[in-house]
Design a protein around this nucleic acid. Structure first.
Lengths: 155, 155
DNA sequence: TTTTGTGCAAAATGTTTGCAAGACG
DNA sequence: CGTCTTGCAAACATTTTGCACAAAA
């Protein structure tokens, strides 16, 4: 749990809070710890319920507020996989990657492709945009035998 | 307005409705016509208000229902550009394209890159997914002089 | 005439906001 | 202490649902 990524994230967060004149609150540190112990794509409600279950009491308002702070600090990444729910994942120290979503069982896999950086650069020049980030979503059907039931899961 | 794309869309829609045993209602045909006369990325509410303004009375429930039908028929495409609003655009007879979004003024531009098809194919084989579609979002800052004000527009 | 589709209003979902009370610096 | 942050509940925005009535086939 207390791995190197988490330690680095804490350090970075503290510096960020200081630079922005924001306070180091228990809630913020608890959220960072919880997020860095997860390996999934979660939404605000997931985070809220897990934390409450673990007796790490934090209100929804605080969750929403600080997801914004963590996002601005670059410690988490925001995603939307086709439905209207905003999903997050920890971000620092990990390679840029993109997502592959199964339309039947909603599982999300990750992959990397270096060509995307080239595309991003080329399109930016061509369209006269300063592109800061990309997000490639591939949708399809996975090969799990128990998938074709089209179960509706939340992730 | 009554261009070739629209005519083809109508034909395709009628066949689709017939095959699925769905009915050809006034509301469905009005929606298709309105959508094919637009050239933007709109949401359910945009469509609702425009149609009501034009005295093409359709309820919100009907809008939502039939956006699903049109989507399944492949006549429209669904998008989410970072906020929690589902945007749509007409789809038939147009080349696959992707989107470039300005984080300041929210304008959306379109582009094509053939390499994406290759990436899609390769990743599908590698990850053992049958990939049916992709969606590449590039985010950045456009070069409009009046953009940096970070105006909040809806599109 | 039999269903499917529509419209309305209520409910459900996800997120934001206002404000009093609490905690950080 | 002053101010930022939290927690609660109410407000909001978007989408879904239940049901009576209308209209395709």
């Amino acid at each position: 749990m207390k791995d190197i990524h988490y330690e680095k994230a804490v350090a970075r967060f503290l510096i960020f809070l200081d630079e922005k004149g924001l306070r180091k609150t228990t809630e913020r540190m608890m959220m960072l710890e919880e997020i860095y112990s997860r390996h999934d794509h979660f939404d605000a409600e997931d985070l809220y319920t897990t934390m409450v279950d673990k007796k790490q009491y934090v209100s929804r308002a605080t969750i929403y507020n600080n997801l914004e702070v963590l996002l601005e600090c670059g410690l988490i990444r925001k995603n939307q996989f086709g439905n209207n729910v905003t999903k997050y994942e920890k971000a620092a120290n990990f390679r840029q990657h993109d997502h592959l979503i199964c339309l039947d069982c909603q599982q999300v896999k990750e992959f990397c492709d270096p060509r995307l950086q080239q595309i991003q650069k080329m399109i930016g020049e061509m369209m006269q945009f300063e592109i800061t980030q990309h997000d490639l979503l591939l949708y399809g059907h996975c090969e799990k035998t128990d998938c074709e039931n089209k179960k509706i899961l939340s992730n």
